[in-house]
Design a protein around this nucleic acid. Structure first.
Lengths: 225, 225
DNA sequence: ATAAAGTACTCCAATTGAGAGTATAGGGCC
DNA sequence: GGCCCTATACTCTCAATTGGAGTACTTTAT
């Protein structure tokens, strides 16, 4: 039995499908590809290319720079076939890790300053990610991207990335402003105002709210596969 | 040396801080709390409460239902203190796993139907999550939430959740519409249009773009601690 | 009375993440 | 010519984590 491929496997395959890379480049350049949508440890990449090449999905070529070897991987027909088959399987849902929200829940245990610091950090992280998104955008506009011939696809992803980050950034800003306007972190007199705000939140799910017998998911959704 | 606490530990502590729970409830009711912002396996929760109670951060009380035991955990002062200290440490950045984007990148290897199915799945997942968000919203408005006294904090989280999902949902809709308008998945004549669209994407980072000497992060950012 | 669904966990094999460690290459500086 | 610093190119290990299977009792529905 062939060992099971994970989404990480397919992410690596997808990146090598663009053009051949050495493992080192692959691990570094993931930044330009999947760091923000499928973040995995560097060592996982090194492990993965070996597995994939032992399964014949990647083709590893040893090159020499002086006395030091490096392996350059390219995708095989079998690898492309594996990707093709994967596209027919169910996708795993959007998932996030957002520690700041957990901190928000217990914020009243700490100081106002602490939660402000946390949210400022979130805002700055988002700015940094957006800066990167702007870079990618500019590369496409300048026509110098490695995937220039695929703009019509990549544009959809850049759209996603920038929209999402703008949303998170805007939330961080308004939440920061709200908390700054408080005297302290106690509930005193804040709950009425909060209910007003919560009432205005747009949960616009016209159809699905009407009648969709969604089975209650008892299982946590699978994050990888 | 006390074993290191992870963000998962603090997530459990934060949930038990609301009121006592049995482990089973804790594992199930994570849905209402952290399923979408800090998803972890069920077995991880069982392991975690044991660790936390052996460290004296939780207090486990054995109860009996007929012949079957169940353990109800409540937070201790030491547990609350641990949460308090945690709030002073740096937060780990927002991270997501979004398999659909990887699929989008290699979509031309498959059929138009396949990528449409994938995006439809994303849209439906988002709808389901929004339905849940609407439920939480309604509970607060009806004044029956377990954390009713904390609306002023929870409202900020509900705002985040609903804003983010609306953004992802809207992206799924417009991307679906765009792809439906294509004859096939080939690049023919699509790149010019895509460049137009990409040009209009709002990357509004006035300050940070001007002059922020952000050190290039070579390390992948830590996701948990 | 019986079946099905819910409660309340334990245990395990396989993956993954984070970091430390090893070693060579190349450029700048004195 | 020697030294230092940074980049390249990995390997190895350990602990954390996941998903799933398994056990066994309780409650509800038929």
């Amino acid at each position: 039995m062939a060992p099971q491929l994970t989404t990480t496997s397919y992410a690596v395959l997808a990146q090598v499908a663009v053009h051949p890379w050495s493992t080192y480049e692959l691990a570094q350049q993931r930044v330009r590809y999947f760091r923000y949508v499928w973040p995995r440890a560097e060592s996982a990449i090194y492990r993965e290319v070996k597995r994939l090449s032992s399964m014949g999905l990647l083709d590893g070529n040893k090159e020499w720079v002086g006395k030091r070897a490096r392996t350059v991987y390219s995708i095989t027909d079998k690898g492309r076939e594996a990707l093709r088959e994967w596209l027919a399987t169910p996708v795993s849902p959007f998932a996030m890790d957002f520690e700041a929200l957990i901190r928000l829940f217990v914020a009243p245990l700490g100081t106002k300053e602490q939660i402000v610091t946390t949210l400022t950090q979130v805002r700055d992280d988002v700015r940094e990610m957006l800066r990167f998104g702007g870079e990618v955008k500019q590369e496409f506009l300048d026509g110098i991207s490695v995937t220039q011939d695929q703009v019509y696809i990549r544009a959809l992803a850049v759209d996603f990335f920038i929209s999402l980050l703008n949303t998170v950034g805007a939330w961080a800003e308004r939440t920061l402003a709200e908390i700054e306007s408080w005297d302290d972190l106690s509930p005193d007199g804040k709950n009425e105002r909060a209910l007003e705000k919560i009432r205005e939140l747009p949960v616009l799910t016209p159809e699905s709210v009407e009648r969709t017998p969604v089975p209650p998911r008892t299982q946590l959704h699978p994050r990888r596969r």
